[in-house]
């Protein structure tokens, strides 16, 4: 199992570094832009905070984007939320199906290792990739803050990164389950899943009737504006998130163990 895990990590390392540096780098640039935009943003902050539902949707009614905390929550919150969600989907959606898609399944499964161990090794590689991704991005954001000579509340920053990581796990576990269904690599479906979940949250915050159902989506508990404005985490949303993560993983084990493998 360790050999399969190591091989998966080696095969994914390039993609992991590219995505970590791209998303983390973009977030870093956003942070650095704060200084140059500071003056203009102050003028816009009042206007942005009075745009009703749209201000609520993007957290600008509770946080001022004229402060680094507010700027970070709206800008980096969006970049990291979307970028990390897409990375989580991308890395998980093909992790099982690529063996059949690439016709390597017959080689791998003719070796003395059970499907359960293969799923576990591959699932673990996704988990580790998401941890490394989160750490690299987090470090890059903190470097940006440090370069500005500013500070950002440590507790809220850690809560933001942890909740984003949990959201990534939820997206990945949904895609992991999809990956177990067939031997086709469905990258489009994976990216689409992440996008739908993101926009479900955005639309849910704009449309009043949908607000009560936001907790179904993983982006509800990972909302940067709520976290940085000190709002309590929605226990219902977290509970749904944990259930979806376990259901996705269990579903992948169950389905992959019972179906025929394509040649």
């Amino acid at each position: 199992m360790r050999t399969i895990f190591t091989k998966e990590m080696k095969l994914n390392i390039k993609s992991l570094l590219i995505w970590s540096l791209a998303v983390g780098g973009l977030g870093l640039i956003c942070v650095l832009m704060y200084r140059s935009m500071e003056g203009d943003v102050k003028e816009m902050a009042d206007a942005f905070s009075n745009m009703g539902a749209f201000s609520d949707a993007f957290g600008m009614s509770t946080l001022s984007i004229a402060t680094l905390k507010g700027f970070f929550a709206t800008e980096v919150g969006t970049v990291h939320g979307l970028g990390s969600g897409m990375f989580a989907a991308l890395i998980a959606i093909g992790i099982l199906s690529k063996e059949e898609e690439g016709h390597t399944g017959e080689f791998l499964f003719s070796l003395p290792v059970s499907r359960t161990k293969v799923i576990a090794a591959k699932g673990l590689s996704v988990l580790i990739a998401l941890i490394v991704f989160t750490v690299i991005c987090g470090v890059l954001y903190l470097i940006g803050v440090k370069m500005l000579g500013e500070t950002i509340p440590g507790d809220e920053f850690m809560r933001f990164m942890a909740s984003q990581f949990l959201m990534n796990l939820e997206v990945a576990s949904i895609c992991f389950a999809i990956s177990s269904l067939s031997g086709k690599n469905r990258i489009g479906l994976g990216i689409g899943t992440a996008m739908v979940l993101y926009f479900y949250d955005v639309v849910g915050r704009v449309v009043p009737d949908l607000k009560d159902y936001l907790f179904f989506g993983p982006y509800s508990y990972a909302n940067a504006s709520e976290i940085f404005s000190g709002a309590e985490a929605d226990a219902k949303a977290l509970a749904v998130g944990v259930i979806v993560i376990f259901a996705g993983i269990a579903g992948a084990f169950w389905q992959y163990n019972r179906r025929d493998l394509a040649g």
Binding site: K7, L11, G102, H103, E106, F107, S110, P112, V113, G263
Partner: peptide, 16 residues
């Protein structure tokens, strides 16, 4: 246990 003692060559040899 069986696969420990089997050497299989598929008709189309694909690797990474």
């Amino acid at each position: 246990k069986i696969l420990e003692n089997v050497g299989y060559m598929p008709s189309e040899a694909w690797f990474y």
